[in-house]
């Protein structure tokens, strides 16, 4: 039951964060620029046109009423009209978000798939060459600009070696409409279209790898520190005294209690991961939310910008809630006491 309390507190935290986000976004979009209608229409628009748009957007209302309308819309899941495409922002995001989700999921998967074993190896051979190698990798991965990694991978794997496709989600001309889960690979597998699934994975590999390197380094670094911390505990010595083999001790006795910090760090790092996705999507022409967001930003499409930022924040909050549940699953102490150690 304490765990439910813990989750309830985290849920309240999430709602607070979302509320705060809505204020920040509102301030950026409605207060900072002065006149959003003038901004959207550009300097050549007539005074009547501007007044019209102001009327339509409710910009002539007092600020608090504008905010109430904005939040009311958010609560209904309504992000408003794009000022430029005249389509609803909801629709735009609904069509672009799954590609971003797919990229981010693959990224997190790759980061843990390689980051955790690297961290375990570094801890196992602390201060020996595997450790030094992993630590060097973590530092370099952290300071490599994401766009630079993306470009390097694109040139190396795409143009020089020509082993992987470098743009888009599928080869041009492929006819496939993802409409079950929205995730291309999952849908292709569900409909049994193995060819499309294979192509989609090939296209996903480079962008996901580019985006995952920094996170992978972080996961490896934190896993290493956490493993070393746990290895000094009495229960590890006890397992040794009772003849539990090295391999079992390392993975069962040591890794599981050591797994909470890397998970938690993943939650905190998630915001910068979304930021990185913006850059990676642009470089690999990935048809996701980021490309949409960048276009909205360069064209000053305020509602679209607000929508994209808000959905990014929501994404962050959801991932962190999910991590809270996972953390409770990994470590019974959190489940039983209802708080983090």
């Amino acid at each position: 039951m304490e765990f439910l309390g813990f989750l309830a507190r985290r849920l309240a935290w999430s709602l607070l964060v979302l509320f705060g986000l809505s204020v920040v976004i509102f301030v950026i979009a409605r207060v900072v620029p002065g006149d959003p209608a003038r901004m959207a229409l550009g300097p050549r628009a007539s005074a009547e046109q501007v007044a019209d748009l102001q009327e339509k957007l409710g910009l002539n209302l007092p600020l608090y009423q504008q905010y109430a309308r904005f939040v009311g819309g958010l609560a209904r899941g309504e992000l408003g009209q794009s000022l430029l495409t005249e389509r609803s922002v909801n629709l735009d995001i609904r069509t672009t978000f799954p590609a971003t989700l797919e990229l981010v999921l693959a990224t997190v998967f790759i980061a843990f798939l390689f980051g955790v074993p690297l961290g375990v190896a570094a801890a196992r051979w602390k201060d020996r060459w595997p450790d030094n190698l992993v630590r060097a990798f973590a530092i370099v991965a952290a300071v490599m600009p994401t766009f630079f990694i993306a470009l390097l991978l694109q040139v190396l794997a795409g143009y020089v070696l020509q082993i992987l496709p470098t743009t888009g989600q599928l080869p041009t001309g492929t006819e496939f409409e993802a409409n079950i889960t929205g995730l291309l690979i999952v849908d292709a597998l569900l409909t049994g279209d193995l060819n499309v699934a294979f192509e989609a994975m090939r296209h996903l590999l480079l962008p996901a790898l580019a985006l995952s390197l920094a996170t992978m380094g972080q996961v490896a670094r934190i896993t290493r520190a956490s493993m070393i911390d746990v290895s000094r505990q009495d229960y590890i010595e006890a397992a040794r005294a009772f003849g539990v083999p090295d391999r079992v001790r390392l993975f069962k006795y040591q890794l599981r209690p050591a797994f909470v910090p890397p998970l938690t760090i993943m939650g905190l790092e998630f915001a910068s991961l979304i930021g990185g996705a913006f850059v990676v999507e642009l470089i690999f022409s990935w048809p996701g939310m980021a490309a949409y967001g960048i276009r909205a930003i360069t064209q000053k499409d305020l509602n679209a910008i607000m929508g994209v930022v808000m959905v990014s924040g929501l994404f962050f909050v959801m991932v962190n809630l999910l991590i809270d549940v996972l953390v409770g699953f990994v470590d019974p102490r959190i489940r039983i006491r209802g708080r983090r150690a």
Partner: peptide, 27 residues
């Protein structure tokens, strides 16, 4: 061996049964 500190000598993330059967299995 009987370990000294009951607070720190048991693995916090596995049940008692899990820990004892693991030891027994390899023994």
């Amino acid at each position: 061996m009987v370990f000294q500190d009951p607070m720190s000598s048991l693995n916090p993330v596995w049940t008692i049964e899990d820990q004892l059967t693991t030891i027994l299995k390899y023994a």
